[in-house]
């Protein structure tokens, strides 16, 4: 087995590119679920973000604008989910699945004229000083700005939920919406805000796929990434840090196994191919084994002030 052809610097860079879309979508969904709402439409919002981000980036020749548009598109789509489930009290599971179907159909409709087009690439952002470090500089500190943004977002979500009053209220709404309502918090409005945040994050994740990771628009290109994000939230037991661990493990093992195959490693390919799923689940289950890490108590339950 000759693994010398694998370049660790390039490998880490690929891992970050591969992990970022899932990380963005998962951290958004985590906030939604923390507020007590289960939105299964992540895949639909992601692919809508992918197509809208791509279309805007191509038309405006600006990937930055593409990301902004993708976030708005994801949020708008999630608003439809929010209105249906929070005001019209539709079933969250069915509505979420519907959202995925709508997103897939809508995206292939919008994307038709953009097939085969090329996008302006997102420029690399080299962090001053740190990027000059030997090896580590290239490995960790000279990626595109969305990679850093996604990691900062994880830190921000963690701090928000743990240290701020607003974060506490969000969690209270998710744990017991009747009590939160009795205390005078506007459960429905808080949930709508969380849903919008989740939609925007999923949109960004999708746009990262079409603008950086692939980079092109192809119908159905998320190919299940949204479902992976949903699974990671559960296995990470609704903790921001673990969501990041899960997304990076999944992205990391995916890229690593491809590199091992390319280098001709002497490991059964079927095992390598299954390894991203196996290792991610295994690690997250082990680190979540101790303590109480149940789902938010009101997750998926409809709320109406009159009940």
């Amino acid at each position: 087995m000759d693994l010398s052809s694998i370049n660790p610097v390039l490998l880490i860079a690929s891992v970050m590119v591969s992990a970022t879309p899932i990380l963005l979508a998962a951290i958004g969904e985590m906030v939604v679920e923390k507020s007590g709402v289960l939105n299964l439409g992540v895949e639909g919002m992601m692919i809508t973000g992918a197509v809208v981000g791509f279309a805007v980036a191509v038309s405006a020749t600006s990937p930055g604008l593409g990301f902004v548009a993708a976030a708005i598109a994801g949020a708008l789509l999630s608003l439809a989910f929010g209105l249906l489930t929070q005001y019209l009290l539709s079933n969250q599971v069915a509505t979420g699945l519907g959202l995925t179907l709508v997103g897939l159909g809508l995206s292939s409709l919008i994307g038709k004229p953009y097939e085969g087009m090329k996008t302006p690439t997102l420029s690399k952002f080299e962090i001053p000083l740190l990027s000059d470090l030997p090896i580590l500089g290239d490995m960790l500190f000279s990626h595109d700005v969305m990679v850093y943004f996604s990691l900062l977002l994880v830190a921000a979500v963690w701090a928000f939920l743990k240290y701020t009053r607003a974060g506490l209220i969000l969690r209270a709404v998710g744990e017991g919406h009747d009590s939160a309502h009795a205390l005078g918090y506007k459960v429905t409005q808080i949930r709508i805000l969380a849903i919008l945040f989740g939609g925007a994050c999923a949109g960004l994740g999708g746009a990262y796929l079409s603008l950086v990771r692939v980079p092109q628009w192809t119908e159905g290109m998320t190919a299940g990434a949204g479902w992976i994000a949903l699974a990671i939230v559960v296995f990470a037991s609704w903790r921001a840090g673990r969501v990041a661990v899960g997304a990076y493990l999944f992205g990391g093992v995916t890229v690593l196994q491809l590199n091992l195959q390319a280098a001709g490693a002497d490991v059964p390919v079927a095992l390598l191919s299954a390894s991203p799923y196996l290792i991610t689940i295994l690690v997250l289950v082990i680190i979540s084994a101790r303590g109480v890490h149940g789902a938010p108590a009101s997750l998926g339950r409809p709320f109406h002030a009159s009940h």
Partner: peptide, 21 residues
């Protein structure tokens, strides 16, 4: 081997892994 016929993200990752090797 990708064990799939269609997954653009994975296909792009695989191409990148081959090129990097």
């Amino acid at each position: 081997w990708l064990y799939t016929w269609f997954d653009p993200a994975k296909e792009a990752d695989a191409a990148r892994a081959l090129i990097e090797n």
